[in-house]
Amino acid sequence: MVNELKEGWNVNQMAQKVARDIPDGSYVNLGIGIPEKVAAFVPEGREFIYHTENGLLGMGPVPAEGQEDPELINAGKKAVTAIPGACYFHHADSFTMIRGKHIDVCVLGALQVAENGDLANWSTGEPGAIPAVGGAMDLVAGVKTIYVITKHNTKTGEAKIVKNCSYPLTGKAVVNRIYTDLAILDVTEKGLKVIEMAPGLSFDYLQSVTEAHIFQ
């Protein structure tokens, strides 16, 4: 089957599809890495307000070179800007926004997502590794809608969309929708429903490269 692997969507196309599905006026938290790309594809006429859990609502784009402020950073500890109308707050308030269900959408990366919406994205559980969790468990427990953006399979061909996560969980049954390079999948009570497939893919092919059971 590997020979048949189609190209699929690139990361920018995936991010664009995520942005397309976020309603106007949403408060949005973007995870570190690929999820950050979503901010570049806000559809015309829509306004999102970005929350970064280290204490800023109204996060703006990366500053021009030389304009970085080490005390104005995002959750990835990278320099950012604050838009007019932004506000700063301490950590307990920041996680009140998260845990108290005030943030509408969170976009996160994943190591594994299971067909019931279980997410593993903080640890491979490798013995001796330094565990680090950050705000991921709070985000999946508190944000109203959780989108995952991830490659469909790992570089070495291992499944990321799985029947059951083998890595330690970030949260149980927390993911609402998965955007991969091959498809968009909704987590439903019946399992993973295919919402959209990359051009040229057949459902049978998609199932053949997906460990989890999927349906149309």
Binding site: E53, H90, H91, A92, S94, F95, I98, R99, P131, A132, V133, G134, G135, A136, M137, D138, A141, G142, P168, L169, T170, G171, K172
Partner: peptide, 30 residues
Amino acid sequence: LVPQGTLAERIRAGGAGIPAFFTPTSVGTP
């Protein structure tokens, strides 16, 4: 190791005279 929001709330609770609290964060995880 403490989830970030739980760390913040444990500190907040410590300062507010609340000895413990219940949170949805980390349920079902190690």
